[in-house]
Each structure stands twice: as structure tokens, then as C-alpha cells.
């Protein structure tokens, strides 16, 4: 198995495990039996910081379009709508994270998973592709963040 990649956000190392797939909305994707499990990448978590509140506006069983709004998040540094990473069917949410979202921060790639979808994995990125995607956009992202904070 190949090694994980580390994307440097300034001095902060965002670790990207090699055994995961990635979506452009900064979610990781772990294929499991019959479904894909999604969570925030350490890149996304670094931008948001401590998660305070997570809310979903769709239900298990719903058919989702790619980029459909599915929820909302509030963190110490940010608010954001959340969107479907792929087209597919929402299988289930991680109820534990809904009750106490701190797992997103402490175990980003494990217990901090968000939801599972039945969807086509082939539309996701490899770790190298996601790294390249972050690298290509980092300059613009920084400009945007600095302009706002």
C-alpha cells in the first residue's frame, strides 16, 4: 500500500491517507460493503476548526443529486452549507457525530465519518489527484481566506 500524502497548509500538515478516495468538496470517501462512507478531509477540518453544530436537511433513503445541499455546519471559524459529494442514495448518517460532533476533529478519518451513500465511486479522486487539486487551488483559497478573516 502506498504512503499517505501530506499537503502543507502554511505550516499545518494536512494528512491525506492513501487508502481513501476523495471528492472535490473536501470529503474523503471510504468504500465499504454496499456503500461509500464520507467524512471531512483534514484540509477541510483545518479550515473549519472545532465543529460545534451539524445538521442535515435530507433523510436516509433520499436520492441525492451531485452538489445538492444536504446540510449545514457551524464551527469555531466558519459556517457552511454541505453538499452531496456524488449523485446517489443516502444510506445513513453517523448519529454519534450528530450528537457530539467533536469526533470530526479528534478522529477525522475514523469515528468522525459523516454519512454513507450508495454511489458510483469512479467519480472520486485518488489521493494524488486530490493533492494536485489542493495544490492547484491553494493560492486562490488563501487569497479568499485572507480577504475575509
Amino acid at each position: 500500500m502506498s504512503e499517505s500524502l501530506t499537503f502543507l497548509m502554511g505550516k499545518y500538515p494536512a494528512v491525506l491517507p492513501a487508502d481513501l478516495r476523495y471528492a472535490r468538496n473536501h470529503m474523503w470517501c471510504r468504500p465499504r460493503e454496499g456503500a461509500l462512507r464520507f467524512g471531512f478531509t483534514s484540509y477541510a477540518v483545518r479550515l473549519m476548526q472545532d465543529v460545534y453544530f451539524l445538521d442535515w436537511s435530507v433523510n436516509a433513503g433520499d436520492a441525492l443529486q451531485h452538489k445538492q445541499q444536504i446540510g449545514h455546519i457551524e464551527t469555531s471559524k466558519a459556517v457552511s452549507d454541505l453538499f452531496a459529494p456524488l449523485a446517489g442514495t443516502l444510506v445513513r448518517f453517523n448519529d454519534e457525530v450528530l450528537k457530539d460532533p467533536s469526533a470530526v476533529n479528534v478522529d477525522t478519518y475514523g469515528a468522525g465519518w459523516l454519512f454513507e451513500m450508495a454511489a458510483d465511486e469512479s467519480d472520486t479522486l485518488s489521493v494524488q489527484e486530490y493533492y494536485n487539486f489542493l495544490d492547484a487551488n491553494w493560492e486562490k483559497t488563501q487569497t479568499m481566506l485572507k480577504g475575509h478573516m
Binding site: R24, L47, M48, K67, T75, A78, V79
Partner: peptide, 13 residues
């Protein structure tokens, strides 16, 4: 004094 909105970064239109 609002928090930063990352919706566009996370895929909104």
C-alpha cells in the same frame, strides 16, 4: 462579525 462562509468551497452554486 460573521464567521467565514465556506459554502462555495464545499460545493455550492
Amino acid at each position: 462579525g460573521l464567521k467565514i462562509d465556506l459554502s462555495k468551497l464545499f460545493g455550492g452554486d
